[in-house]
């Protein structure tokens, strides 16, 4: 199969759209890791939680009130902000001073707990299992096929929205961090929390704010995820978290614009390499594995050249 220009452009566009979603998913993780050095490995589960909420929204709210399910990203945003705040105050705050390991284990445990709740249909967010999931799946399948066309290029609506969200929300977040007092307080805390504290900054409030912001971003990403992917209880750990880690490290920890650029890079790499795989002779068509293979290859090469990521700060600092 020959590689046509149109196919290539379509793959490029798909990659950019997908990359916007990756950036949106990774930005919150990067912010939280940058500020409080907490690896929130429940971030993937947070995203899936929001995705479940959006599916529930499409089942319960959309038919009753005729509200477009895309609107659910706003309640998702608020719900995850609330969850993030609670998780910080109830768990992370109590253990973060003890070092790196305890918060890592705690958020790992939290992600297992959330997955368990999701897969057992307990709690306010029943899982998408076949019995009561078929209706949901059908509804959201029909919805997710909404696409529009610019010239010969197809754009999927939710993916395009993820892209727009990423290129609008993340620069706003960057402006917030660099231009406002609270944003600077977040940066100061990430650079030296003790110095921030004795300079008069309430670092507990700052950490709470960053955890809330980072989690709320997971809410946005999760709402959009429900429109483009099949949502399973473990998709957070199996599908999202590996990509998030790659994007965060590639972009430079704590760098929001770096995350955006890295998201695009990873998205385009994956989609173009899938396309290339399709053109290979059939005996080499291991295309399902080629995308991650190429992505990680580029990841390794970039880290060899720039160990702190594309936008990371040099070790001298």
């Amino acid at each position: 199969m020959a590689l046509g220009t149109l196919e290539f452009v379509q793959a490029l566009v798909n990659g950019l759209l997908q990359g916007g979603f990756f950036a949106l998913s990774a930005a919150g993780f990067s912010l939280i890791f940058g500020v409080q050095k907490v690896l929130n490995v429940a971030h993937g589960a947070f995203i899936i939680l929001a995705a479940f909420a959006t599916i529930q929204f499409s089942i319960l709210v959309t038919p009753a009130l005729h509200i477009d399910p895309l609107f659910s990203i706003f309640p998702d945003f608020l719900m995850l902000a609330l969850l993030g705040g609670s998780v910080y105050l109830l768990i992370i705050y109590r253990i973060e001073r003890t070092g790196f390991e305890a918060p890592l284990l705690a958020t790992f445990g939290l992600s297992i707990l959330l997955e368990y709740l999701a897969s057992n249909g307990i709690g306010p967010f029943p899982a998408l299992d076949p019995s009561h999931g078929i209706g949901a799946q059908a509804q959201h399948q029909s919805y997710s096929s909404n696409a529009f066309q610019i010239g010969p290029i197809f754009l999927q609506e939710a993916q395009a929205l993820a892209f727009v969200m990423a290129v609008v929300v993340l620069p706003i977040l960057q402006l917030f961090l660099s231009r406002t007092y609270r944003g600077r307080a977040i940066r100061a805390t990430s650079q030296d929390w003790e110095a921030a504290e004795f300079s008069g900054i309430n670092t507990k409030a700052v950490r709470l704010l960053s955890f809330i912001t980072g989690s709320a971003l997971a809410g946005l990403a999760g709402g959009l995820f429900a429109f483009t992917n099949s949502v399973t209880a473990t998709a957070g750990d199996e599908v999202l978290l590996p990509v998030i880690l790659v994007v965060v490290i590639l972009g430079g920890v704590g760098s929001i614009l770096g995350t955006l650029a890295a998201g695009f890079l990873v998205g385009v790499t994956m989609s173009v390499s899938s396309l290339i795989a399709l053109t290979l002779p059939s005996q080499f068509q291991f295309h399902a594995d080629l995308a991650p293979l190429l992505t990680f290859l580029i990841f390794i090469v970039i880290l060899m050249v720039r160990p702190r990521g594309l936008f990371g700060h040099s070790a001298a600092e």
Partner: peptide, 24 residues
């Protein structure tokens, strides 16, 4: 009492090694 509260009360501190925010 938390350091940031002491700052608000009127004590300021210049640490050994300065501890500036390097990326600012």
């Amino acid at each position: 009492v938390a350091p940031h509260t002491l700052v608000a009360m009127g004590i300021a501190y210049v640490p050994e090694g300065r501890r500036l925010f390097p990326e600012m």
